Amino acid sequence: MNSRSTRSALYIPGSKPRALGKARGLPCDVILFDLEDAVAPLAKVEARTILRDALAEGGYGHRLRLVRINGLDTEWGEDDARAAAGMACDGVLVPKVGSPADLDAVAALVPDLPLWAMMETPLGVLNAQTMAAHPRLQGFVMGTNDLAKDLGTRTRGAVTTALQHCLLAARAAGILCIDGVYNAYQDEAGLRAECEDGRDMGFDGKSLIHPAQLDVANAIFGPTEADIDLARRQVAAFDAAVAEGQGVAVVDGRIVENLHVVTARATLAKADAIAALERT
């Protein structure tokens, strides 16, 4: 279980210096610096320079910095990948990945950075297991808007199978998996419900389109004080039981075995990671 905090992954247009500057002070765990959908065609070339300079300037703290490039099947994709290879970022987010070969093509252009994959096509979802096993891949980001478009559906329920399939593949490979966006950024109740749904499925966080969504995502995908307290007590009780030659402990009337302690330790590690982020 990965302890890195990815509760909130906010898309920021790579073409807008003001937005790039504002992002330095936002309480997001991940910044998805976008050269693809959020950048108009006429601004795509200039966006590379704007984003490169913003990342070189720094100030983003311990946030995970991912650059989403255009697809290699577009006129901008290869140059985006080459530019990203020289940027001060933590990885490259590849759109509309359909197979491991798509990742191989980007990996050849970006030799030294981890890759992330947008899971947003039917073919990509069907190939999720083989892509999750790619040696350069660190995580999936669900692209639910494009996936819904390709499926011809309007509901989240219709993409549940795809979400769960990608999550299973990610967990089998030990990589991260971030849920798709919620489009109605002023609908806090709807966002909260979808975040809770994604958290309960097992996603590591939520991708977001507006800073107004950050507080909800951070609260729902982060451990509560009660979660942290329980985790500490589970670890302490289990360690005490082991010291006495026992294999299980009891906390709040429930059996605590090794598997529960693994989860408890991961909760505490995530809480520590969140605290470190919030100090920057």
Rank of each mutant, 00 (worst) to 15 (best):
N2H: 12
R4K: 15
S5C: 15
T6D: 03
S8L: 05
A9P: 03
L10S: 06
L10E: 02
Y11W: 11
I12K: 01
G14C: 01
G14K: 03
G14N: 04
S15D: 05
A23L: 08
R24A: 14
R24L: 12
R24M: 13
R24V: 14
G25Y: 05
G25E: 13
D29V: 06
I31N: 02
F33K: 03
L35N: 07
D37W: 09
V39E: 01
A40H: 06
A40F: 06
P41M: 02
A43L: 02
T49A: 07
R52V: 01
D53L: 05
A54I: 02
L55F: 03
G58Q: 15
G58I: 13
G59F: 02
G59Y: 04
Y60R: 01
G61I: 15
G61L: 14
L66D: 01
L66T: 00
D73S: 14
T74H: 01
T74L: 04
E75H: 12
W76Q: 05
D79A: 10
A83W: 00
A85S: 09
M87H: 03
M87A: 05
A88K: 11
G98W: 00
S99Y: 00
D102F: 00
D104S: 12
A105R: 04
A107Y: 03
L113Q: 04
L115P: 00
L115W: 03
W116A: 10
A117L: 09
M118Q: 05
M118D: 06
M119F: 02
N127W: 03
A128P: 04
A132S: 13
R136L: 02
M142P: 04
M142A: 01
N145L: 09
D146E: 10
A148N: 05
K149C: 08
D150E: 15
A158P: 09
A162F: 01
A173K: 01
G174P: 00
I175F: 03
C177S: 10
C177E: 08
I178M: 07
V181E: 00
Y182D: 01
Y182S: 01
Y185K: 10
D187T: 12
E188Q: 13
E194K: 02
M201R: 15
G202V: 09
F203M: 06
G205E: 07
K206D: 07
K206R: 15
S207G: 07
A212K: 13
Q213C: 07
Q213A: 12
V216R: 01
A217T: 13
N218E: 11
A219H: 14
A219F: 07
G222I: 10
P223H: 14
A226E: 15
I228G: 11
A231N: 11
Q234L: 11
V235F: 06
D239M: 08
V242L: 10
A243P: 00
A243Y: 02
G247R: 08
G247K: 00
V250E: 10
R254V: 14
R254P: 08
I255Y: 12
L259I: 15
H260E: 13
T263N: 13
A264R: 04
A264Q: 01
R265T: 14
L268P: 07
K270A: 14
A271L: 12
A271H: 02
D272W: 13
A273Y: 11
I274G: 10
E278T: 13
